[in-house]
Each structure stands twice: as C-alpha cells, then as structure tokens.
Design a protein around this nucleic acid. Structure first.
Lengths: 188, 188
DNA sequence: GACTTTATATACCGATAGGTATATAAAGTC
DNA sequence: GACTTTATATACCTATCGGTATATAAAGTC
C-alpha cells in the first residue's frame, strides 16, 4: 500500500465533501488511519497537500486540452473534443473536480485561490490561444477570443456542476447539445 | 450608528475577502470594534450572521428578477432585462456577490451550501418558469427550460466573476453582447 | 422610583486548529 | 556489522476556534 497516495486520495475525498478550509488535518490522518507526522513527512503542510493533489490531477487535464487545441481550423470539431475531454475528466475524477469548482470561486486573495490560480490561468490560456488561432479560419469572431474562452469554460463548468450535484451522467448527445448551444445559441 | 447593521457590513466584507470558513468571529468583532457577545446578541451564531446577510441582500434581488420575469412573450427583451438586473445588482453589491459566487460552489453537503441553497433554488425557479412560459410564444425551444435556465444563470455568473476579479465595469453594450451571444451563439 | 427590556463588556469555556520535538523501527548502503 | 536514509508513532506545543456565564449600564414602562 502506497501510504502517500492513500493519504492524498483520502484528503481529496474529504476536501470535496466538506471543503478544504473546514477539513482538519486531524480528520485526514484519522480517516487515513495514519499519524499526523506521517502526513507532514510526505506533504510538509496542509497547503503542500493541496499542491500535491493539484499536481497529480490538473496536469493531465491540461495536457489533454493542449493536444485537442492544435486543430483551430475545425472550430466545431475542436469545441466538441474540448467539451468531451473536460466532461470525461470530471466524470472520472468527481472528487477532484468538485474541489476544483469550489476553489475556482474562492476569494481571489485567499491562500487557496492563489495556489490554484496558475493552473486555472494555464487552462484559460489554452482556450484563448485556440480561439485566437481559430480566427484566421473563421472570419466573424472579431477579436473576441477572451470572451469566448471565458464563456466556453464557464458554460462547461456550469453543466458539470449540475451533473456532479445531481449525479447525472453524460452521453455524447448531451455534449453535442451543449456545444451546439454554445455555437448557435438557444434559437436553433 | 446602527450596531447590527455595522456588524453585518463588516462581516460581509471579511467573508467576501477571505471566505466564510476562514474568517473568525473574533476577526469580525475586532474589525467592527465591538465585543463578541454583542454579535451573538444580534445574530445568535456564525450561521445566523450568514442568514442575516442573505436575508438582507438576496431577497431584493429575487424580487427584482420576479418582476422582470412576467413578460415571457418578449424573450430577447426579458433576457436583456434579466442580465441587466443581475449585472447591476452585482456591481452595487460587490462584496455580497463575491461571497455568493463562492458559496454557490461550496460542497453540496456543507453547512454553508445548505443555508444558501433555498435562495439559489428560488432564483433558478424564476428562470425556469420564465423559459417554460416563453415556450408558448417561442416554438423552437423544445422543453429545454431546465437547460436554458441553468446555462443562462451560469453564463451571467461567469461574466460577473471576471468583472469582480478584474474590477471591470459594465455598460449596456456589454450586457447586450452577452445576451446576444446566449441567444444566437458565437457565430453571428 | 421600582421594574423590565435592550444593549454592551469582562472574562472565561472546552475543543480543535495546524504543526513539531523526539524517538524508533525498518530498509538500503558501504 | 556499522551507518544512513526512509518511514512511522507518542506526546506535546501554542493559537485560535465558536460560543457563553455573568455583570452592568442605559433606556423605556408603569
């Protein structure tokens, strides 16, 4: 049994269920069945534990999104793949995504937000670059890459939030509808 | 000087800046320049303080949204008024809206989420009823009132979140663009 | 003027927060 | 086999948490 990994998974579950701030280190160690210094041996601090979680989960998602982003000539296809990637990731890592959504709306000055900020910015950059590159193939997007990147991430996270809270699952037709709504609005 | 109101405002500011869980009652009373039992005299508990804040700020917003919702024959006009109402409210109550956004993504089982949940549900219902009523005037919406209500609120909150964090201000053309994007997508 | 209600302060409570000093057992290294 | 590194446990630290018992001063009520 990999103790470090076990602690990390236990902590993630508790953070997702009760929130980072309201989950004590004591609760993590007790639930993990280990002693407190063991946790501090591996992660150094409560924030170090959070960084360990982010490093493990967020990096792979960013890598996948980067891969998808390299085809700006096909906007509809790429958006569909983006959405599919994130929906799938969220479904496979529910605890992590729940924690992520929660922290993504923490006060901008809070310690927790400062820790996830670089990851969120990287995610945003991937989408912004994509929409910027897409403009050379899609004339009528008018320098609105910032607006489109933000609202696309926002729309996806809105739907994921609902899915997580009501334990729905997604199929490909759902992903299609979301992307379709994003591209063509509600009147089509 | 209204002591109760003064405590409430101070607490709201601290909750918005540092988060509810990470703001201590001690910090609230110290910043307010009052003693702890005074706070407990007015609000009973930390959660009571939160309820006081919600009661004061969220109710008026819901009232305004209800008023706007009574014209389902004019979808574009109504959506514009909805968006304008929420954007304006957020701009006038930045601390409250920051706190609201943050708590709206707290873990669904957490104490804080359970406290704001009824308010968020009421807000959602207003939009859902609107889209449902709008269908008798707007044929091609296909029983998707849930989807539309969710994504409309989500889109607006996405933009508000950015505005709050980067201290942008909104003008009517911005509101128009957001609603336009929602109705007709990004390709128009 | 006696009595009640409203509002505020001093001083304290047990529980828990995040974190550590110290010891030690096991495992790898020479 | 001596030595170092890795990994874990006991017991403890100080600070702060949310909350309260008690006292009292002012203001309204009769």
């Amino acid at each position: 049994m990999d103790t470090k990994e076990h602690i990390l998974q236990t902590a993630l579950k508790l953070f997702a269920e009760h929130g980072f701030a309201t989950t004590g280190i004591q609760e993590v160690t007790q639930t993990s069945g280990i002693a407190k210094p063991t946790l501090y041996y591996y992660f150094g601090s409560k924030e170090g534990l959070l960084e360990g979680i982010l490093e493990k989960f967020f990096k792979p998602l960013l890598d996948n999104l980067t891969t998808v982003s390299n085809c700006p000539s096909d906007v509809p296809g790429s958006l569909y793949k983006f959405a599919e990637t994130v929906f799938k990731f969220a479904a496979e890592n529910k605890d992590f995504y729940r924690m992520l959504l929660s922290m993504g709306f923490d006060p901008p000055q809070s310690r927790t937000y400062l820790i996830i900020k670089p990851y969120l910015e990287k995610e945003y950059e991937i989408f912004e670059s994509f929409f910027k590159a897409a403009q050379q193939f899609h004339g009528n997007m008018k320098d609105r890459e910032k607006q489109y990147a933000l609202s696309f991430i926002g729309l996806i996270n809105t739907y994921i939030s609902v899915q997580l809270n009501f334990d729905l699952d997604i199929d490909s037709s759902f992903v299609f509808r979301v992307v379709h709504q994003y591209m063509y609005g509600i009147f089509s």
